[in-house]
Computed example of a mutant assay.
Amino acid sequence: MKILAFNTSTAYCSVALEQAHKKLSHVKLSARKHTQYILPLIQKILQEGAMSLHELDALAFNRGPGSFAGIRVGITVAQGLALGSGLPLIGLSTLQILAQAAWNRLFSPRVLVAMSTNTGHIYWAEYQRNHLGNWQSECGETILQPQDILERMKTLTGRWTCVGTGWKSCPELIDQSSLDLLISNIDLPHAKDMLPLAKIMLILGSTVSPETIEPKYLSKAFFS
């Protein structure tokens, strides 16, 4: 499968390209300049892969949660590229991408995702990977106060890997928990971690049309 993935949900712009025998990726700190960097990054990675947009099988984008402006930029780019090429679109969750990053780097099948926001709340998910490579979260993806997360963690057992910015912004989640926690250095989502998820969704036919894309905000809180 040939898939182009791009992510603009945080202060970083990242792109990744999967081809038959290789993967390419680029990341750039963009702050609030996503519109300035994302299309040149896409053009660059397609040139490096000696591919045109029309040779791809699908486009994968991050639909949130994340930066309000960043999510809108990513959706706009996804819509424009899909309308121009006729390619199917695959929308992925930021929290699921971070869980996949834990598997890609650490082979962790149980992942606690915590992303800090500008309101003091935390985007939260408890992901477990099944034998098919799908991620499932019993509580879904939600937004909670730190004290509510500590209560959630009391219901869990075993070893979990921690990803996301929330563990640094709320160290009490670590200090006051009795769980066996592996604290990773995986803080932000990257397009290269979207590729395995996008492949599964493409096989399952879980694609969206440009006209039906909806961002995933969960609330009016955005990444800090």
Score class of each variant (00 low, 15 high):
Leu92Glu: 00
Gln43Lys: 14
Val208Gln: 15
Thr157Tyr: 02
Gln43Met: 13
Asp187Glu: 15
Ser25Asn: 14
Ala101Phe: 05
Ile186Trp: 01
Arg72Lys: 12
Trp103Lys: 01
Ser169Phe: 12
Ile213Gly: 09
Gly205Ala: 13
Thr35His: 12
Ala102Ile: 02
Glu141His: 01
Phe223Arg: 07
Ser116Lys: 12
Thr117Val: 01
Leu39Met: 15
Ser25Leu: 00
Ser30Arg: 00
Ser116Arg: 03
Leu144His: 03
Pro196His: 05
Ser219Met: 08
Leu202Cys: 06
Ser116Gln: 13
Leu144Asn: 02
Ala101Gly: 05
Thr8Cys: 14
His190Ser: 01
Met201Tyr: 10
Ile183Lys: 09
Val113Asn: 02
Leu4Cys: 12
Pro146Ile: 07
Leu41Asn: 03
Gly74Trp: 03
Ile45Tyr: 08
Leu150Glu: 10
Thr161Arg: 00
Phe6Cys: 14
Leu106Asn: 01
Val73Ala: 14
Glu172Leu: 13
Asn134Ser: 11
Glu172Gly: 00
Leu89His: 04
Leu81Pro: 11
Ala11Val: 12
His34Leu: 11
Phe61Pro: 10
Leu95Met: 15
Glu48Pro: 02
Glu55Arg: 09
Arg129His: 06
Leu41Thr: 01
Gly64Ser: 11
Leu218Asn: 04
Pro196Tyr: 08
Ala102Arg: 07
Tyr127Gly: 10
Leu188Phe: 13
Leu41Asp: 12
Gln96Ala: 05
Asp175Arg: 04
Val15Asn: 09
Ser137Cys: 12
Ile174Trp: 00
Arg129Leu: 14
Leu41Phe: 12
Ser219Ile: 10
Ser52Ile: 06
Gln100Trp: 04
Ser30Met: 04
Trp167Val: 01
Lys28Leu: 15
Asn185Met: 07
Asp187Gln: 12
Ser52Thr: 15
Leu218Ser: 03
Leu87Arg: 05
Ser25Arg: 02
Gln96Pro: 00
Ala78His: 06
Lys220Ala: 15
Leu202Phe: 14
Tyr123Gly: 01
Ser30Gly: 09
Leu56Gly: 13
Val163Arg: 11
Thr207Tyr: 03
Gln100Cys: 03
Leu95Ser: 04
Pro196Arg: 09
Val111Ala: 07
Thr8Gln: 09
Thr8Val: 12
Ile122Asp: 05
Arg152Trp: 12
Lys192Asp: 11
Ser206Phe: 00
Lys168Ala: 05
Gly140Ala: 10
Ile186Arg: 07
His34Val: 12
Ala69Lys: 10
Ala102Trp: 08
Met1Phe: 07
Ser108Tyr: 03
Ala102Gly: 02
Leu41Lys: 07
Ala20Ser: 14
Ser209Met: 13
Gln96His: 01
Val27Gly: 02
Leu29Ala: 09
Tyr217Glu: 13
Val208Cys: 13
Gly166Trp: 03
Thr165Glu: 08
Ser25Ile: 00
Glu141Met: 06
Gly164Cys: 03
Leu41Ser: 12
Tyr123Phe: 15
Ala125Trp: 05
Met1Cys: 04
Cys139Tyr: 11
His26Phe: 09
Ile97Leu: 08
Leu173Gln: 01
